[in-house]
Structure formats: C-alpha cells, structure tokens
Amino acid sequence: MLSLLAATAASAEPIQWAELGLRPYLFDIGGFQLRYYSLAYLLGILLGYWHLSKMVKAPGSPMAQRHADDLFFYCTLGVILGGRLGYAAFYKPELFTGFTAGEFVSWDLLRLWDGGMSFHGGVIGVLVAISWVALRGGLNWLRVCDYISVNVPLAYMLGRIANFINGELYGRPVEGDIAWAMVFPGGGDVARHPSQLYQAGLEGLLLGILLIALFWKTRARYRPGLLVGLFTIGMGIGRFVSEFFREPDAHLAYVVAETGLSRGQWLSLPMIAVGVIVMIYAFTRQPIGKAKPAAPQSA
C-alpha cells in the first residue's frame, strides 16, 4: 500500500482509495467479521488501560490500581453508551424513534454496527464514568480527569485510522493540486482530502505525544487540571480545524450552509472555552506537594 501511495503521489492523478487493497474487516469466518473499527475501539481501550496502569505507579498518583481497574470498565461503558447517545442527540435524533423491520435488533439506536458514534458524546460518557468512580473512591475528580485525558488521543488516532480503512468520513473536495488527494468510493469521482488521516495525526498522534511527554518529562501532573485542560483545548481546536476539510454528514449539510460552520465545529467551541477555564484554574493554584509560604509571626 505504501508503494502505491508513493507512486500515485508522484503523478498528477489523485489516489484511488479502491486500489489501495483495503477492506473494513481483518478476517471473515463463517459470516463473522472482525471489523477494524471494533478492533480500533478494543486496542485503544486496552492501550489506555495499560498506560494508565503504568501512570498510577508513578509518584504523585491520585489513585491506586484498583481504581484504574474500575475506570477501565466504566469508561468503556461511557465511551460506547455516551458515543451512541451523543450521536443520536447531536447528529441524528431519528435514531431514538426509528426501527428496522425484520431484524433481530430492530431499534435503530441499538444498531451500533450500522455506524454512528459521537466523540463529544463519548467525552460526556467518560466524564460520567470518572465522576462515578471518583465519588465511590473518594478521589480528586479533576486529577483523575488529568490521568484519563493523557490516554485518549492515541486511542482516538486508532479510530480515525479505522475510518480511513473503511473509506468513510472522508473529506471535502480539494481545491488545486494536492499530491495526497483521494477518490473515495462513496464520494463520487471527486478528489477529496483524506481528512480521517488529518484527524488521526493532529488530534491523535500529535496531541497524544504532547500529553504523554508532559506527564513523564515535566511536573504537569502535579497541577490539577493542566493536562485535561490542554487535552480539551487541543481536541477542540484540532476538531475545529479538521472540520474545514471533512465532508459534513449529508443530513447536516444545511448547518454549514446556514451558519458557515459544521455541527462538529459548533460542538468544539464550548470544549475550547471549558479547556481555557480549566487551564486558568490550573495555573492560578499551588501545585500539589508544594508547600505554601509560612505566615509571618507576630512579635
């Protein structure tokens, strides 16, 4: 695939996604398909759990391994339930009332394999999960959010790569000559931005490396809210920028036509605002473990 990409990029013709030899599943056994999107969710969650387990062993952790185990379970539920409910609420409300006749699972809201998960809904679901675990364990909620946020971008990157492998959520038509422009099967004979890869690189890899480096190489974890604030700003800005290159969902194209911004961009603006507020909070408080100056004693 890499050789085909390189050869095509050197020519004036756009890359044909259909010629990359990609398919949406890893293998098919007796009608059962292990799809890359499901595999991305699984690997992302396992990778996050593995790294979180290493983080809680480092000095200054606000929780123990048993709390990391609980977070693994409840955050997984939060991602799935929040992602699906968020997609229905923000993007496709008809899923709440739609039914597919003749199917074993007929309620469209429960038919996750038909597609439709919202990142913003998943964030809300994870926040609910963190709140539950923190309340039960008597943990500092904001510091737990810091630790979880470090592990989200790389899992997000895997999901966007899976979107690319599926040939879905492709970008808008390109303007001018771009060597990496692609023609996707569902997008007509138009060269488009591979916006899935933009998001994987910007909101996934780049942000993930930054947060991991700050956690392990600096004392950022001792400033409650710093890491999650930076994560929220980074994801919000990254999503806002990448949406300029991503093709809006067909049933939400009117939002762009009427407002100039996509639904994802409107949802990203409050994320950025919240992230800024949390960052201000983090920098105006004493770091954890730093002694306050002693009060002067009266004569």
Rank of each mutant, 00 (worst) to 15 (best):
L169G: 01
L211S: 05
L211Q: 10
F119Y: 11
D69C: 08
Y37H: 03
I209T: 01
R111G: 05
W50R: 13
D177I: 15
M157F: 12
G138S: 10
V79I: 13
S268V: 00
W216Q: 14
P62L: 05
G78H: 01
T218V: 03
P293I: 07
S53Q: 14
R239W: 10
M182K: 03
L77A: 12
L207C: 11
A40P: 01
E103G: 01
P287K: 08
A58G: 11
A64G: 12
S11Q: 13
T232V: 14
V123M: 14
E168S: 06
R136L: 13
M279A: 15
A88M: 02
A6W: 14
L227F: 09
G275T: 03
E175S: 13
L214C: 13
R160E: 03
L267E: 04
I288A: 15
F244C: 03
T284R: 14
A291I: 09
M235F: 14
R219Y: 10
G208R: 02
S195M: 03
A10W: 05
V278Y: 04
A200Q: 00
Y25R: 04
D28C: 08
L205F: 13
F283K: 11
L5Y: 12
L20I: 07
E103S: 13
Q265N: 08
L2Y: 14
D108R: 11
D177H: 15
L269F: 08
A257T: 12
P287Q: 15
L210Q: 07
I15D: 02
S195W: 00
C145D: 00
K290R: 15
V255N: 07
K292I: 10
A200R: 00
R111V: 09
G204V: 09
G238N: 03
F245A: 09
V150A: 01
L139E: 04
L81W: 06
I280L: 15
G137P: 02
G159I: 06
E168C: 07
G167S: 04
H251L: 11
G102P: 01
P14E: 07
G264Q: 05
Q265C: 08
A295I: 07
E258Q: 14
L205I: 10
R111M: 09
E168V: 01
T259H: 07
D146P: 08
A134D: 02
E94Y: 10
V105E: 10
R221V: 04
M1I: 12
Y37K: 07
A191E: 03
I178H: 15
S149T: 08
D69V: 06
Y156F: 15
L109G: 01
